[in-house]
């Protein structure tokens, strides 16, 4: 009997340690996807060039993350990229004439969508489209532009 109790105690402690480890891994080590189960609404924006923007990239306004990119599609009619993003519902007062641009965090960081608030009185609602957009900067295009300018100046 004594031995059974020791086994049960040991196993209980073992499983408890596993739960503590899982708790540590979820809270300290990794980030919850805060926007996964939360209420939110979807916005769309069209870009000529999305660069290396990926699904689940952050959407931020004034540097604060307010949502995530949920889909990136190519519109064969208008030959543009359509980026769908999900914004947390507490941020429902974004002016309708805000503009969206694709930015890069740091030199080697990933790309994200940055919103720049406009001044309109009415707000973006679910399903709306952000009309003013600025495409991602592609390094090769920048360099070739620079080189063409140099060549032009030399003549």
């Amino acid at each position: 009997m004594q031995q059974t109790r020791a086994v049960e105690l040991g196993t209980g402690l073992f499983v408890f340690m596993g739960i503590v480890a899982l708790f540590f891994l979820t809270t300290r080590v990794s980030s919850f996807d805060e926007y996964a189960g939360q209420e939110g609404y979807e916005l769309q924006a069209r870009f000529d060039q999305v660069g290396t923007l990926k699904v689940r990239a952050p959407v931020s306004i004034a540097g604060v993350q307010i949502g995530r990119v949920t889909a990136i599609e190519f519109d064969t009619e208008r030959l543009e990229a359509v980026v769908t993003m999900r914004i947390a519902s507490q941020y429902d007062r974004i002016p309708a004439d805000s503009d969206a641009s694709i930015l890069t965090s740091g030199i080697l960081g990933g790309q994200y969508v940055g919103l720049q608030p406009g001044g309109a009185e009415d707000y973006l609602a679910a399903g709306d489209e952000i009309l003013y957009t600025q495409s991602a900067v592609v390094l090769e295009q920048l360099i070739s532009k620079y080189l063409f300018n140099q060549a032009g100046a030399g003549e």
């Binding site: 073992f14 499983v15 596993g18 480890a21 899982l22 540590f24 891994l25 300290r28 080590v29």
Partner: peptide
């Protein structure tokens, strides 16, 4: 049952 729990503990100890 034991292996996933051991893995969690290994991960936590490793970090």
């Amino acid at each position: 049952i034991a292996v996933p729990i051991l893995t969690l503990i290994f991960n936590a100890m490793g970090i």
